[in-house]
Design a protein around this nucleic acid. Structure first.
Length: 270
DNA sequence: GCGACAG
DNA sequence: ATCTTGTCGC
């Protein structure tokens, strides 16, 4: 048991009234830190094999090069009213651990209150995890949320672990450039707070649309990922982390693996 | 009242 | 998220 419920009082309780859920989210947003507070630098995420080889470094031994950070991906799958949460932890592109947990969902999906539907299963999965990840990639929004307390923020603050939100669609906020256009791989479009984000001044950059993958020529295109800070990371670093963990697919590797692991776990759920 | 809304 | 065949493109 490595991960600790640092803030047990903030655990998403699905029996709360909607007003109470929203109040809890405001508390969470107050404790959330959308600034870098990491034990690593995003550039050190890639495995040695992915980085340009430096024979000087290769020849030296014990030159202080630390192990790459542990990056965890979390994703859920559903079977009827059961939520299956899967966590896969990678270090330098290698899977180090993976766990899953199944929990009954108590409420339906409600935009803005996702953590109260999926949070229980996610925390149950984290309780199974033996490794303490350096950062967690959560499927969904972080700061890009009506009260700046999306799923990634809720999980990050509750466990006090650096967290990043990785979503496929925009929940709220305004892109600085239309997301209807086709952007090249690597493009980042800032998402700023508008009136729908009631807890912070308009214009604040609360995340980015990140084009992690794009087709070369044709009249076919891939939608960007929506990346936002969850806890203890800035908006730009959140995008850097997703960039560093992406490997040929739209989704970052930890998220992709958690996605398929959760999907496969559906078979062993009744 | 209308519109908009992660997974 | 989930239900699903075919289809387009590299």
């Amino acid at each position: 048991m490595t991960m600790q419920l640092v803030r047990p009082e903030l655990v998403p309780d699905p029996s709360l009234s909607q007003a109470e859920m929203e109040a809890l989210q405001r508390d969470i947003a107050e404790d959330a830190r959308f600034e870098d507070d990491l034990d690593f630098s995003p550039e050190t995420i890639a495995s040695a094999g992915d980085a340009p080889v430096d024979d000087q470094t290769t020849l030296r031994t014990g030159d202080g090069a630390a192990d790459p950070p542990l990056v965890a991906g979390v994703d859920q799958a559903f079977v009827d009213d059961k939520a299956i949460s899967a966590i896969v932890v990678l270090r330098g592109g290698e899977v180090v651990e993976r766990v899953s947990a199944v929990e009954q969902t108590e409420i339906p999906y409600i935009p803005g209150l996702l953590s109260f539907r999926e949070g229980g299963a996610i925390l149950a999965a984290f309780a199974e995890l033996e490794i303490d990840p350096d950062v967690v990639l959560v499927d969904g929004s972080g700061r890009i949320h009506f009260r700046e307390a999306g799923l990634a923020t809720h999980i990050g603050v509750t466990l006090d672990v650096p967290a990043v939100g990785v979503a496929k669609n925009l929940l709220c906020g305004t892109p600085e450039q239309s997301l209807e256009e086709t952007y090249p791989e690597g493009a980042r479009i800032p998402i700023t707070a508008d009136d729908s984000v009631e807890t912070c001044p308009g214009g604040t950059v609360i995340g980015h649309a990140l084009q992690t993958r794009q087709y070369d020529s044709p009249n076919r295109y891939i939608n960007p990922l929506i990346v936002s800070p969850g806890h203890r990371v800035s908006a730009s670093t959140a995008a850097d982390i997703v960039d560093a963990t992406t490997d040929g697919y739209k989704l970052p590797e930890p998220t992709r693996l958690a996605d398929s692991y959760a999907d496969g776990a559906k078979a062993s759920v009744e």
